[in-house]
Every structure is written in C-alpha cells, then in structure tokens.
Design a protein around this nucleic acid. Structure first.
Lengths: 345, 345
DNA sequence: CTGAAAGCGCTTACAG
DNA sequence: CTGAAAGCGCTTACAG
C-alpha cells in the first residue's frame, strides 16, 4: 500500500476551484452556498477521500465533542453495566469517549485527568468509588479544580470526598441498611461482612450502613466476622475463605459487592457449605450475572445502565452556580434464593 | 467558580520572559535550555496551571498518541476481558484510547471508523466478530482502506471478511472442533447447537467447526436442533427455550458463546432439566463468570486479556508490506462439570 | 453568496 | 543555548 498524505481542506478547495472558506461552509453546512459550488466541493471531497482533521477543528473552534471516562477497571462487570449506559448516552449526544482504566492506582487516575485536560474534553466522568484518604484525593482534586476553572465539567458516580462535583449517588448507606433490615426480617442475628478496601468510600458507606442498621436492632457483628479483601471475585473468595478458616459461626454473610459475593459463593461451595441451607449470602449492585448463579443472589439492585446515562447527562448540563447537583439513586433490595429465613423461626 | 481562560504556551513564555520556542523546549525536554530559563519556565507553567493543548500539539506534530477501539457492546463480558488487556497495553505504550460501542449496528461501526479517522488516531482496533455479508462490510472496508492509505494502522480480533488487516485470530473453527471431539469422547451422539446470528463470522466458524468435526465422526445434527438467537444471555435463554419447546431430544447442547450458554443454563434449570444429569452443556470463550455457575461450564478457553494485549501490540508494529500479520490463538478445551459422559457408557 | 485574512495553540527547522 | 518565523489544518468574523 503506497502511503499518501491525507488530503486537506485546501486540497478540496483547490480541486473544486473555490476558497477555503467556501469549502468549509459546504462541508459544515454552516452557511448557504450556491448549488453549483456546493456540488463541486462535495464531489472533490468525495474524490479525495477527505476527512476533516478533528484536531484542527477543535483548535479553530476551540471546543470539541469529546468526554473523558475514568474507571477503576474496564474488566469489572459493574463498570461494564455503567459503561453501556454511558456509551448509549454518548451516542445520543454525538459525543466521543476517551477512556481511562486506572486499575485502582490513584496516580494513574491523576495522570488520566491531566491527559484529558490536555485534550480539552468537554467533560470528565469519574466512575466508581472515591477514596476516603484526603491526601490521596488531593492530587486529583487539584487537577479537577484546574480543569473546572476553565469551564470543564465534572460528574461522578459515587461519593468522592471533597470533589464537589455533580454526582450520581447510589444510596449505598441506605441501601445496605434496607438490606440489613430485610435480613433481620428473615430472622438473622449473626452476621459476617466481607468488606472491600476500607479506603473506598463505597465500602465505608455500605459496610457502615449495614452495621448501623443492625445496631439499631440491637445486633452487633463480631470483629472477627468482618473480613476485608480486594473488590474482586478472587478477593471475595479469599475473604470468605478466611471467614471459614476462623470457623463460620454466622447465619448470614453480606458481601459489599456482587463481584465479591460471587467469589464468596464459590468459596462456600468449595467447602461444602450450603447456601442458603447453612448460611445465607447477599451482595450489592445487581450485576447481570448474579441471577444466573446457584442460588441466584439476593442483592441491592442499582440501575447500572441508568447510572451511566445519568452521569453523562449531568455532565452535559451547564455548571450550576453555588452547589453541585446531586442525584440520589435508591437501591432496591431484591430477595433471591441465596437468602432464607433462619431455620427455627 | 469564575471561568478563566485556559493559559497557553504564550502566557507561560511571557510570564517567564522567554520565547515560545524556549518554553516549548523546556516543557517537552526536546533540547537543552539554560537552567535559569528552564526554571523560570517551569515555575510559570506551574503558576498558570498550564496544560498543553493536545489538539495544537497533534496539529503541529502531525501525529498523536491515540488509538481507537471499536467493539460491539461494552457491556459484554467477552469485551470486558479483552478491554482489560487493551487498556493494560495502552498504559504501557502511553497511548490514549477512544472507544466506540456499536451495539452491533454496522452503520455505527462505519461512523466510528470515520470519526476516528478524523481524529487521526495512530491505529484502530476492531474487537469482535466481523460480518459475513460482503455488502454490509463494504462501507467499513472503504473507510478502513482510506485510513490505511494515509498510514493508519488497523488490527482486528476475529475474522473480518475482506479487511486484510493484521489480526489476532482465535481459532474458532478448530476450537469448536476440538470441543466436539471431546464431547464425542464422552459418548455423546445427539447434539443441539445454539447458534448466534449467522451473519457473524464467529458464529459461522464455531458452528461450522463443531458440525464438521461431528460429521467426520459420522454424527449429524438434526436441523430442528440448531437454533439461532442473539449473542446475548437472553438470546441464549430464548434459544434454549425454543429447543425445549420442540422437545429436547439430545444429550448435549453447544452454545456458541459462554454468554449464550449462561442463558441456556438458566432456561434449562427453569424447566427442571438437570445439567449435566439430563443434558450436558458447553460454551465458548471462558469468560470469568462461567466457572462460578452451577455447574461450572465446559468451554473453549480463550486468553481474553491476552487477545487484547496482542491486538494492540500488532497495531503498534509498522505495516508489513505484502500480507497482513496473522496471529492465530488456539483455544483450549476445558472440561468442567457441565458436561458428563453419556450414561450407559 | 463568496473570498482574503486573521487566529486557534502549538512545534520545529533555520539562524545566530 | 535562544529566538523569530513558518507551518500544522481548520473556522469565522469582516468585507464586498
């Protein structure tokens, strides 16, 4: 294949025998141009396989139709669900998406925001949990503040400390509390919790809400029954494993995400512990796959695609002076077969 | 928040009392600059929260560090696995990723390629099955040819008719044949196939390879036992449903993807049909979740993350004159509990 | 309706 | 080592 230069507007204009301005107008439909010239330009563009240089356009217009999306892990089903919504909304708004996957590295998160700032994206979307650690959040906040100071829009899913950005907030605390009450309603009193990393706001909220609701009912969870692990399937497996090693003495296990719950279920099964026969198990998020597990998992359902659409929509709104927009989304407790009433009730 | 203008290299240069050229050199480290000036520039840039305009850079350098990734559905676990690999490799190569999700609409696929051409991405990655239909493929091919004519690189995962691009090719035909032989080895003779849309090359290869290997062993599959459905979990459910409605008369079901298999498993369970007791079930891909199903699914394992890394690596290589690079990846049959020997063997 | 020209924000030979 | 200037490929007032 012989390498040719990509043709430019200049080439098109010359071939059509018109000025740059006219060619530009035809191709953008920004002003009326005589049908004869119009035709010649279109023909020339087609002939030359002209493709407008988006960088030049962005520069000349000083604006672009691009948004940045930053997530923890593109491979996670939680993100996959949300991403579907984001992409759908992006299609609708005719927006290009540049994607960053941080693999949970805060430095990379900052690097991405700064790269996206360089790209002059219209908006940046942060998907997924923030960090509790202020210092950790500091670099990110600086970058985002600079970005917003020049008109950039930021919208996030989940709680991000100190970001003051428009946010779609799954009500993790309340959802977990609802779940706790539902489980109490089934007669459970002895609980274990598979927590994700404590430095994630989502974890703090979910675990906190869960424990609080239990406490309100006079139920406390023993320290040894709160196990921490990575926010992954294998993290859930390992956490459940440790729980089992310590001697499983509860009737119900709450995993702070469905992904962890899936791992926990595998660990329980591998140890011959029946769910819900020997122990009940519940998760959070309602990712697609968990209804196909055996048993299907009880969870707090979040409308993942909807969250994705909403966060993009928020980002497309003009900044609101004063305070950020907060859109709370209440999770819905879905009782499935992985939780059962305590026998003897 | 008061809206300020984003500062430019000119602002930095002025503040530092140097020329544009010097400021540019300092910030890019392209040439040595006296330590005094260097310092003033750095300080000014920091003070002004300077962020180089990536569009201006791309224009001036006439090149950018961006790649385009086009997939069928960001929400699909198959893509999620691959995307993880792509993002990892992109991080390594310091490449930005712009993402397109076609939701299986060929027109949107063309629209994305043309948008990415406009962005002058270094490379375009097409993830997932191509279409068998030549005409359908035509628009895409045109766009890609134009893109490559000007030095653009294209690499794909899976077979795409007539694209002649570098490719990572999962050996779908051989993998499916291997699986068929393994199942024959378990004593199965009566099979059903849950096919995806016939116009996808992946479907043709997998179903074709499977049936061929059976035929080689003198086993044919009745027409009514080949059911077609969308490439989704619900598609798998519906396809299995139809199979059941027709009176399930086989000992083994092959679903052309794991996602479909997961749906099929649910359908079978909902009808009280035991797997593998009443019927064996196998899929293809080895997406993460299927080992957590009950029973865990037999499948042909593809190294999804690896495919993602490889396709990016291929795209970063210079074009090879003459013929495209083809990297074949053999799937590995993994027998899990969803398939059992035929009873009476 | 059409065009000449300035400008978007950089990089990079070319001189010195 | 440093700077003046051309150029990257567009858009868009400003004139006519």
């Amino acid at each position: 294949m012989v390498q040719q230069a990509q043709s430019t507007l200049g080439d098109v204009a010359r071939a059509a025998g018109v000025s740059l301005a006219t060619a530009s107008r035809v191709l953008n439909g920004t002003a009326s141009v005589g049908p004869a010239l119009r035709d010649r330009v279109l023909r020339a563009a087609e002939l030359l396989a002209y493709s407008p240089n988006a960088h030049a356009q962005a520069l000349a217009r000083s604006s672009s139709r691009t948004v940045g999306v930053i997530c923890h892990d593109v491979g996670d089903p939680y993100f996959a669900g949300i991403a579907r919504g984001v992409m759908r909304a992006a299609n609708r708004h005719d927006l290009q998406v540049v994607l960053g996957s941080t693999f949970r590295d805060p430095d990379r998160e900052v690097a991405y925001t700064s790269m996206m700032r360089g790209h002059r994206v219209r908006a940046m979307l942060l998907i997924g949990s923030g960090f509790e650690d202020r210092r950790r959040q500091e670099g990110l906040r600086r970058e985002l503040d600079r970005y917003r100071a020049t008109g950039g829009r930021v919208a996030v899913i989940s709680r991000h400390r100190g970001l003051r950005a428009d946010a779609v907030l799954p009500e993790n605390r309340e959802g977990a509390a609802d779940l706790a009450r539902a489980l109490l309603g089934l007669g459970h009193r002895r609980f274990a919790v598979l927590s994700g990393p404590r430095l994630l706001t989502t974890v703090v909220d979910r675990v906190g809400g869960f424990l609080e609701a239990l406490a309100d009912a006079g139920v406390t969870v023993e320290r040894k029954n709160i196990v921490e692990g990575p926010f992954t399937r294998d993290g859930g497996y390992a956490a459940a494993q440790r729980l089992i090693d310590r001697g499983l003495s509860v009737t119900c296990v709450f995993a702070s995400t469905d992904v962890m719950a899936a791992g926990a279920l595998a660990a329980l099964r591998d140890h011959g512990i029946g769910v819900p026969g020997d122990v009940s198990l519940a998760g959070f998020d309602d990712i697609e796959m968990i209804r196909d597990l055996t048993p299907p998992l009880t969870t707090v359902a979040l409308p993942l695609e909807g969250l994705g659409e909403r966060v993009l929509e928020l980002a497309m709104l003009p900044e609101r002076a004063g305070r950020a927009r907060i859109e709370r989304v209440r999770g819905r407790v879905v009782l499935r077969a992985s939780t059962a009433p305590v026998s003897g009730i």
